[in-house]
Write a protein that binds this DNA or RNA. Structure first.
Length: 914
RNA sequence: GCGCGAUUAGCUCAGGGGGAGAGCACUACCUUGACACGGUAGGGGUCAUUGGUUCAAAUCCAAUAUCGCGCACCA
């Protein structure tokens, strides 16, 4: 980083116009070329301080930057940059996820364009094509992070299919195999017939869809009494082709006789004889109370099938086309089969009137295709044992969610966790390291590839399936830091683990966050992967709709960066981060606010730089650090330093610093409403007051701006760096990125209540004059005579405080004359403004219509009378006096006292006006 | 069905037991040597409804309504 100066970051005065495009690209390049963003940028990290590590949620290699990424990475960069400035050894681990299904889909699409399928080219060539795709497009999103200014450790980019990452995967699989935590099972799983793979339960998205509850008549083999058929209700009539039973509730009197008689039905269309039995699962109240049972195509039916020893008849191919078990319906798709079955039953007179019925239908989270519950052999991870310590870690506060309410969501899921289906019938991914000997039947999992059977020496065959992508992502926090194969992984993890924060969207709390906690605790001696989980809001469009391609309502972060600059985008997003679950992004409103703020920062800085031509840094800097020190000569000086100290303290606290919106707003209002609106305005006269006052103003302008830039830097890294490099603050660090974070305690001595009070009074006087001008249409150029009477217990001090600021009042309020005294008297033909401990008289002779002034005073008097009435009512309330806090009562008394005086003053003035 | 969240100015949202806030939009005035992406002054809200707790409720509690999210699904 020492090369930064050689990179010639522009140290010349700032250009008149703020143009983010001019500054952002070159600054990022210079940061990067100077060494990037490793653990110890430019040697300023303090090894004694606690380390700070964040792992990025690895974007898919198919991904392009969207608003969710923009928000999430803004937050992570804010935290990373602040920690780095605090001198902590900081690293933001970056990388990408191979994204099994998503990537495979992309490559298949590409092949399809050439008229080929993956089976045409074969597994090996297909994987080669995937790697090529990854090399070509896989880092797109990482490049986009750079344009946002994200200070990730790009020099050590990780990928979930790296060779060392594969080692980690195998270790986990083999270890869990050894403990019996992974197993193969034959059961109903969620099958995507388009991706032709199994999915985990939480990879299925349910949507309510309007459908029908069909009523099908199943004739009894032998009538029981006068009952000749049973009516079953189903939403999926086509699955009747695979029915192997009919279930009724044991408590359902309608069917008791049937069951006792051991009735059987003849399954229509298939002509299969199947039993009628009772099962507690059946709800007699729903539908017809009789349920057709299809063990191969419904998880509940599967369970019933197990209990009653029913045959499992699979009627679908892996593409959800009816297979040979579907008789004459073979070859039809699910949808065609439904129509055909319904029509056939209707022809046979076996279809009763269907009911309208809404029900939830599962869809593939990758391609949206309707999920088929499908019976197959799959690999599973037994979860309850892994989940127990992970639940405990959150209960004990080892891991804390922000906002905290997400912990309940986590508990709910974890406490009802089901085994995790981890095998995928894909090619792109980590192949399951299980080997089979077809000769002697040996089966084993191995970290190394095996070719020969250890039992019989015959050739082995590896499992064809790959692992769920989330199986690899769950290892991200530790596999990216060398575990388990790098020579120094123990030292690395001892120093930098657990990581501090994981920031993510709420939709992957189960898919990813929970699994990281479980795997980390399982493999790293019970260590959690991170201390804090930030669940950031979901970015919606301005109407509150989710942004999506199909709606066409997405906002492209790159377009925002192009239009407003990365700094403004980051600040705008951060401003909107509160505890809410959603964030409605209204580009015009948010970006206007953020962009205007950036411009304000730029222009205020230009003002400061413009007034430093005779400023000698060396003469006013700390001997040791070389940094410019502040000096308080006027109340304005004391005031702004006091305000800065309070802000610094506020930012130091802020509940772990995750209240991004609160912090952004505090910075915004300090910079704009205090520094710009008042201190800079006050400095304009102070700079011309005398050499001592001038120098003090210069020192404080530089000092306050310097510190404000430091605190703004994590939010707006480019603009603050650009300005900071031009500002003569005396700090010899090469970049604001590694400048020290302002520590609230260092500024504690600046807090000065008296000065804050003095400037408040000044503001009251200036405000009164401005308001009076506006009210009567008096030009700002027309100087006015102003007389202030200080009132209250300490009127003499009040006068002194205002008198000391007379020149500034004259300047800001454009007064012809300004006097202040406890015994001042109201001149004739003047307006009066009552403020706390002040009466402000403004001479208006010949300027205004006093009828209007009378009306105004009357209105104000009436308002104050109402207010006083309220307070008096309170003070006459015995309950209030008995139970309210003493301080609250005292404050109410004081307020009432002041109001009473104001009221009397207003009455007097009305009388004076006649 | 169960759980969670939201409901405050025209819009987007902060705040949070003791006199309603910001930005945008709106109105008036101001091109004063940082900034018109600006300055100054203003207008605008019974803080969803109903009950309760409290001396005091926009704020806490409970119901209701509307919107949103999640989980689980009865075929």
């Amino acid at each position: 980083m020492s090369e930064i100066e050689e990179n010639e970051l522009d140290k010349a005065a700032l250009p008149k116009n703020y143009d983010p495009k001019e500054i952002e690209g070159p600054l990022f390049t210079s940061w990067f070329e100077a060494g990037g963003f490793g653990r110890d940028v430019a040697g300023f990290a303090d090894a004694e301080k606690p380390s700070y590590t964040i792992v990025i949620p690895p974007p898919n290699i198919t991904g392009v930057l969207h608003m969710g990424h923009a928000l999430n990475n803004t937050l992570q960069d804010i935290l990373t940059r602040k920690a780095r400035m605090q001198g902590r050894p900081t690293r933001w681990v970056v990388g990408t996820d191979h994204a099994g299904i998503a990537t495979q889909n992309k490559v298949e699409q590409k092949l399809a364009a050439e008229g080929k399928t993956r089976f045409d080219v074969g597994r090996e060539a297909f994987l080669e094509a995937c790697w090529q795709w990854r090399d070509k497009y896989g880092s797109t999103i990482i490049e986009q992070l750079k344009s946002m200014g994200c200070s990730c450790d790009y020099n050590q980019e990780k990928f979930t299919m790296d060779a060392d990452y594969a080692t980690a995967i195998r270790k986990v699989f083999v270890d869990w195999w050894g403990k019996g935590l992974v197993y193969k099972g034959h059961r109903i799983i969620n099958w995507c017939p388009r991706c032709t793979t199994a999915l985990a339960d939480d990879e299925v998205e349910h949507q309510d869809e309007a459908g029908h509850l069909w009523h099908l008549r199943y004739p009894l083999v032998e009538p029981v009494g006068d009952i000749e058929y049973l009516v079953v209700a189903t939403t999926r009539p086509e699955t009747m082709l695979g029915d192997t039973g009919v279930a009724v509730s044991p408590d359902d009197d309608r069917y008791k006789a049937l069951v006792e008689a051991g009735a059987q039905v003849r399954l229509p269309l298939m002509d299969r004889i199947i039993p009628v039995f009772t099962d507690d699962y059946v709800d007699a109240e729903f539908g017809t109370g009789a349920v057709k049972v299809t063990p191969a195509h419904d998880p509940n039916d599967f369970d019933m099938g197990q209990r009653h020893d029913l045959e499992q008849i699979n009627i679908f191919t892996e593409e959800a086309v009816v297979n040979e078990n579907g008789g004459r319906f073979a070859g039809l798709t699910r949808e065609e089969a439904r129509e055909a079955v319904v029509a056939a039953l209707e022809d046979l007179g076996l279809l009763d009137t269907p009911e309208e019925h809404d029900h939830a239908v599962g869809h593939c989270y990758r391609c949206g295709t309707t999920i088929e519950p499908w019976l197959s052999d799959q690999w599973f991870v037994k979860m309850s044992e892994l989940a127990a310590p992970a639940i405990e870690a959150v209960r004990t506060g080892e891991v804390v969610f922000h906002p905290k309410r997400w912990e309940n969501v986590y508990y709910r899921w974890m406490e009802n966790i089901r085994d995790w289906c981890i095998s995928r019938q894909l090619w792109w991914g980590h192949r399951i390291p299980v080997f089979y000997c077809d000769t002697c039947g040996w089966v084993g999992a191995s970290e190394e590839d095996l070719t020969v059977c250890p039992e019989c020496g015959a050739a082995l065959r590896q499992d064809e399936d790959v692992l769920d992508t989330w199986f690899s992502s769950q290892l991200w926090p530790f596999a990216t830091q060398g575990w388990p194969s790098d020579a120094g992984w123990q030292a690395e993890l001892a120093a930098y683990y657990p990581t501090q924060v994981l920031s993510t969207a709420r939709d992957i709390i189960f898919l990813w966050v929970a699994r990281m906690i479980m795997s980390s605790m399982n493999f790293l001696d019970g260590q959690v992967p991170f201390r804090d989980v930030i669940v950031h809001p979901t970015v919606l469009d301005k109407h509150g709709n989710i942004m999506s391609k199909s709606r066409g309502n997405g906002v492209d972060p790159l377009v925002l960066i192009d239009k407003y600059g990365a700094d403004s985008m980051r600040f705008g997003l951060a401003l909107q981060v509160t505890g809410a679950q959603d964030l409605k992004f209204d580009e015009e409103k948010i970006m206007t606010m953020a962009r205007n703020f950036s411009t304000k920062v730029w222009n205020a800085s230009r003002y400061v730089l413009m007034n430093l031509e005779d400023f000698d840094v060396a003469a006013v800097s700390d001997k040791e650090t070389g940094r410019v020190t502040p000096e308080a000569v006027t109340d304005a000086d004391r005031w702004i330093l006091s305000r800065l100290a309070r802000l610094t303290r506020e930012l130091g606290e802020g509940r772990e610093g995750y209240d991004f919106g609160v912090i952004a707003r505090a910075l915004y209002s300090f910079f704009w409403n205090e520094f710009c609106d008042w201190y800079i305005e006050l400095s304009k006269s102070q700079l011309n007051l005398g050499s001592e006052e001038r120098l003090a103003a210069q020192r404080n302008l530089v000092f306050v701006l310097d510190n404000a830039l430091r605190m703004l830097h994590p939010f707006m890294p480019f603009i603050t760096e650009k300005i900071w490099l031009s500002l003569p603050h005396g700090d010899d660090r090469p970049s604001l990125m590694v400048a020290e974070w302002p520590c609230g305690e260092d500024f504690a001595d600046f807090i000065d209540e008296r000065a804050e009070c003095a400037v408040e009074q000044l503001c009251a006087v200036v405000g009164a004059v401005r308001a009076t001008r506006a009210r009567y249409g008096i030009s700002p150029k027309h100087p006015l005579g102003v007389i202030v009477k200080t009132t209250g217990d300490d009127a003499a001090t009040g006068s002194e405080m205002l008198f000391a600021q007379a020149s500034q009042i004259e300047s800001l309020a454009r007064t012809a004359s300004f006097t202040v005294s406890p015994s001042a008297e109201k001149p004739a033909h003047s307006s009066v403004t009552i403020a706390s401990a002040l009466e402000i008289y403004i001479v208006l002779e010949g300027l205004v219509d006093f009828d209007a002034e009378r009306a105004r005073l009357t209105k104000e008097r009436d308002k104050k009378a109402v207010d006083l009435e309220k307070l008096n009512k309170k003070l006459n309330n015995e309950g209030f006096l008995a139970k309210a806090d003493a301080a609250v009562i005292e404050k109410t008394r004081e307020d009432a006292g002041e109001l009473k005086i104001s009221l009397e003053q207003l009455e007097q003035q009305l009388a004076d006006l006649g």
